[in-house]
Amino acid sequence: MNKLFFTLITMLFQAQLLIAQPLIDRAGKASFYSEAPLEDIEAVNETLLGAIDLDKGTLAVSMSIKGFHFDNSLMEEHFNENYLESDKYPKAQFSGKIKDFSNLDFSKSGSFEVVVEGLIEIHGVKKTLETIVRFERSADRLLANTQFDIAVDDFDVDIPKLVIKNIAEVVEVKASFNFKKD
């Protein structure tokens, strides 16, 4: 009986080990660009957390809003205080799935594009997002790049009329991750 018990435990541990760990990048990069008649605004965040599970074809991204840095420090303060309200909503997140994952082969080197669909949450508002992610696979790493547009209004970010010429209604977002294979 004892023997069976131990065998079972050993088997359980092995089973656990077989479940592949997701790949995690702790220094992902995101930037957004707002082009408006009076000024262009750009902000960069280089502390994104990104994870990809190559067994299930799922992806997740989490970032701190305060991690976005602007050239103009007062603009950064206003971005946090007035627009994204980072005290109330400190994070932006995405979780999604790779479409047609079962037909894709992630083990081959080279670059390929996939469609990812999921939920994005900014400023406490969740929206569905579908975007093309370009993967670049080499022996020891997996690079992921994407670019999409976000309508500020969709996320209940209020732009006062006074600065409507300073802030674009649709901003261009770029994100990139570098997953290292062990």
Binding site: P22, I24, A51, S62, S95
Partner: peptide, 8 residues
């Protein structure tokens, strides 16, 4: 597979 929870 809450990847997001793992990230959190």
């Amino acid at each position: 597979d809450d990847l997001l929870a793992a990230l959190e």
